[in-house]
Each structure stands twice: as C-alpha cells, then as structure tokens.
Amino acid sequence: MNMKYTDDHEWARQEGDLVVIGITDFAQQQLGEVVFVELPEVDREVDQGEDTAVVESVKAAGEVKSPVSGTIVEVNEALADTPEKVNEDPTGEGWFYKLRPADPGQLEAMLDEEAYQTLVESLA
C-alpha cells in the first residue's frame, strides 16, 4: 500500500485515479476516542492545506487539512453513526473522503512511510 503523509498527520493513498484521505494512527491516538466527524460536501473543490473536515474526540476538536488539491467525489458516510471507526481502523474503514486530484505531483511530494515514521518517533 503506497501511503503518503503530511506533517499534520493526515494520510493519502492513490486508488485508481482518486486519492483517499484520512488521519494517521498517531493522530487518532493523540485525539483519543472520536465522537464526531464533520465531512466536506461532495463536489466541493479544495486546495492543498485547506480545512476540509473536523474530527472531535471527547477531549478536543481538530481540523483536517486536505493533503492535496482536487474535487471531493465521495465521503465516508458511515462515520456519521460510527465515528469510532477512526480509532479502530484509521487507515482502513476510518477513511474520511476521496477526491479527484488536481495535481498528481502534490501526492508524490508528500512524506513517505519512512519519513513519516521518523517524524512520529521525534514526537514521542
């Protein structure tokens, strides 16, 4: 699985011609038990770094910034009733949204697995 990361703890993964986006295991651990996720509208055009989603735990609210620019094509509706999937399976069933990327180069330029793990270890 070719995962890419931001230093804000979002992940992005190419699936066909779409990019799937979510938050990392480290991010969900820091947040604690997720109780609410606000997702963007389908068809919205977002810029890289723009706030696209909100994830709220018992403790706090966090903004999710889009790792890449593009058009939102699908959001994970299941999170409305089961936000705890973000804790249980952050890189699988806990995905946030899929978008059609505007600039494939942005995904390439993100942190790879090794660079992200180094970042996480430096925060521990």
């Binding site: 609410f36 709220e56 609210a61 409305a80």
Partner: peptide, 11 residues
C-alpha cells in the same frame, strides 16, 4: 442544560 440536536459537540 443544552441538548444539541445533532452529533457535533458544542463546547
């Protein structure tokens, strides 16, 4: 007391 109608916490 205040009860939000949706699931978004109001802090």
């Amino acid at each position: 007391g205040l009860l939000p109608e949706g699931r978004a916490p109001m802090r």
